Amino acid sequence: MSGNGNAAATAEENSPKMRVIRVGTRKSQLARIQTDSVVATLKASYPGLQFEIIAMSTTGDKILDTALSKIGEKSLFTKELEHALEKNEVDLVVHSLKDLPTVLPPGFTIGAICKRENPHDAVVFHPKFVGKTLETLPEKSVVGTSSLRRAAQLQRKFPHLEFRSIRGNLNTRLRKLDEQQEFSAIILATAGLQRMGWHNRVGQILHPEECMYAVGQGALGVEVRAKDQDILDLVGVLHDPETLLRCIAERAFLRHLEGGCSVPVAVHTAMKDGQLYLTGGVWSLDGSDSIQETMQATIHVPAQHEDGPEDDPQLVGITARNIPRGPQLAAQNLGISLANLLLSKGAKNILDVARQLNDAH
């Protein structure tokens, strides 16, 4: 009898209710805020589980004197976190989706994509230029951005401005803007500013005609071990179906173009009346040469937790077992079709030249 009692006690200790789920994140304040929001949602869904947040620095956090596009290494903000995932030191990792490459290392998958916040870019102005827009900034004003995508589009749109690289986390960039006289304004992701509670610093939100956004911008991705079915089931509740389908289309477009950090590629997606609209573009580094096109596809946005595919093969690095396969494939095909259209119009040449120029500098 006593033996059975011990077995029952052991089973209770090993039951999922007692389990601590370890969540990996970057150390920056924004990353911690984003991770806290994901953990809060998981806690609400699984009140019996405990969650421990483990923060670590990544290569991208450490190399702050070089433009991201020049470092010449993929997975700048993800490699150390993936290493911890691989060694079973954490069970899942919360990322900004735009930091996750469209091809993940073997053994990993994006197990959830959370509801997207505003994906557009924002302009934050130096205190002396508050009330201005990019259009009304004085001639030769210097605007800071760490992104080739932003610089290429904005140089084309605002030729009277000069664009220079600015690195560091959000706090560091804002301090550089406010305390030094080098920059009249800087460009940042609206979602990051909003998550930090800095709505009052948003001086201008850039519309798609001015600057399309990065693939996955404004959404959070939760990376897990691809074979860890328990954790895949656990994080599945975080999937937002519309965000998922938009981001599958965007990531398929980028992957098929073979774009990345070192080339200016941008997108804009919208879901309306059962249609998914995808606009994508590529630019030369100075913005003088560009190709942009829009395509659409009829896609039914499923309700969360309709029964999805059981075999769960990944699409552009994403596993969404609780979302039907048909809409996911339709979104992926839309991204591939748009990429093929741009490639047929000469996108590869623009991107190759951009890559060579970026590598040469």
Rank of each mutant, 00 (worst) to 15 (best):
I299R: 08
G287R: 07
G107S: 10
D178K: 04
D233E: 11
A270Y: 05
H268I: 04
T58H: 01
S69C: 13
T59I: 06
K74F: 08
W198Q: 06
G221H: 05
H256F: 14
M196R: 06
E293Q: 15
N200D: 14
D289A: 13
L206G: 06
S69T: 11
G131W: 11
L137C: 06
S344D: 15
A31L: 00
N322M: 10
T35M: 10
V93A: 12
L329Q: 15
R175A: 11
F158T: 14
R175M: 13
A226I: 07
T145P: 01
K43Q: 11
L42T: 04
I231K: 05
L68S: 10
D312C: 14
E86S: 11
R173I: 02
T41N: 09
E306P: 07
Q181S: 10
Y213E: 14
D230P: 11
V39W: 06
P264Y: 01
A297C: 15
L148G: 14
E86Y: 15
K87I: 13
I248E: 02
P241H: 08
R116N: 04
K227S: 09
G131A: 11
K87T: 12
N349S: 07
V353H: 15
I63Q: 05
C211R: 00
L351Y: 11
S165A: 07
E139F: 14
P324H: 14
D233A: 07
I186C: 09
K348Y: 02
D178Y: 13
D228Y: 03
Q194Y: 05
F163S: 08
H120N: 12
E258N: 02
P302N: 00
L170R: 02
L341E: 11
N322E: 13
R173C: 00
S57F: 11
Q217C: 03
P105Q: 11
L244T: 14
L276T: 01
M212Y: 02
I21T: 08
G221K: 00
R225A: 03
F51N: 05
I54Q: 03
K87A: 12
P101Y: 01
V265D: 02
K128L: 11
G72L: 08
R173K: 04
H268D: 10
N88A: 10
C247I: 00
H268Q: 15
Q180G: 10
H126F: 08
Q204R: 09
Y277R: 12
A347K: 01
G197Y: 07
T190Q: 15
M271K: 10
E179D: 09
G287Y: 05
R195F: 05
G24E: 00
I53L: 12
T294D: 00
R26M: 00
V301N: 01
M271G: 13
I231W: 07
Q296M: 02
V94W: 00
H160V: 05
D121E: 06
H305W: 09
V130C: 14
I113P: 02
Q229C: 15
L49N: 03
N333S: 01
P127D: 06
I350H: 15
V142L: 11
T145V: 10
E80C: 11
S75E: 05
T136W: 13
L85V: 10
E242C: 02
I323G: 04
L234V: 14
F253Y: 13
K74G: 09
Q180N: 15
E210K: 01
R149M: 02
R255N: 04
D91R: 04
A44N: 13
L170C: 09
D307W: 15
V235T: 02
E73M: 08
E52A: 14
L137S: 06
D99A: 04
G281P: 02
G216H: 00
R150Y: 01
A152G: 11
V130N: 12
T136S: 14
L234S: 03
V267K: 08
V282I: 06
Q50H: 13
G326C: 13
K27P: 11
D99Q: 01
D121P: 03
E139A: 13
A249M: 03
R173Q: 02
G218S: 01
H83N: 13
L232D: 05
H300A: 02
G287H: 05
K345E: 01
L85N: 01
E310V: 03
R251L: 01
V316Q: 02
T319Q: 01
A303M: 04
A67H: 04
S37C: 11
S75C: 15
M56P: 06
R164W: 11
A151F: 09
G281M: 01
L97Y: 00
H239F: 00
R355M: 15
K176D: 09
A297Q: 05
L154K: 05
S262T: 06
W283K: 02
A44T: 12
R26F: 00
G280M: 01
Q332R: 10
T243M: 00
T133E: 12
A297D: 11
K140D: 13
K115R: 11
N322R: 13
G317K: 00
P101T: 12
G221R: 01
A252W: 01
T243Y: 00
R32L: 08
V224Y: 03
V237S: 12
R201S: 05
I299L: 12
A122G: 12
N171S: 12
T59K: 09
H256C: 12
N340T: 10
D286Y: 09
K74E: 00
D312I: 02
G48W: 10
R32Y: 14
S344H: 15
A189N: 03
P127H: 04
A320V: 10
I318S: 10
V123D: 05
T172S: 09
V130S: 04
A31H: 00
W198G: 08
P101G: 05
V224F: 14
D311L: 09
Q153I: 04
R22Y: 09
R116T: 04
R195A: 04
C211A: 10
A31V: 01
P302G: 15
R201K: 09
P106A: 12
E139C: 14
D178R: 03
F125Q: 15
L338D: 00
L341H: 06
Q328W: 14
K70R: 08
I113M: 03
I54S: 08
L206D: 05
R164T: 12
D99S: 02
S284N: 10
N340G: 11
H83R: 13
V316E: 05
D121S: 04
V90H: 05
T58A: 08
E306D: 07
A226M: 15
P159D: 07
A40T: 11
S45V: 09
A55G: 08
R173H: 03
D36I: 07
V93M: 09
T172H: 07
L245T: 01
I113R: 01
G218K: 01
V124T: 06
Q153T: 05
P324C: 04
Q314N: 14
A112L: 07
N200M: 10
K74N: 13
T298W: 12
A354P: 14
S69E: 12
S288Y: 06
A31I: 00
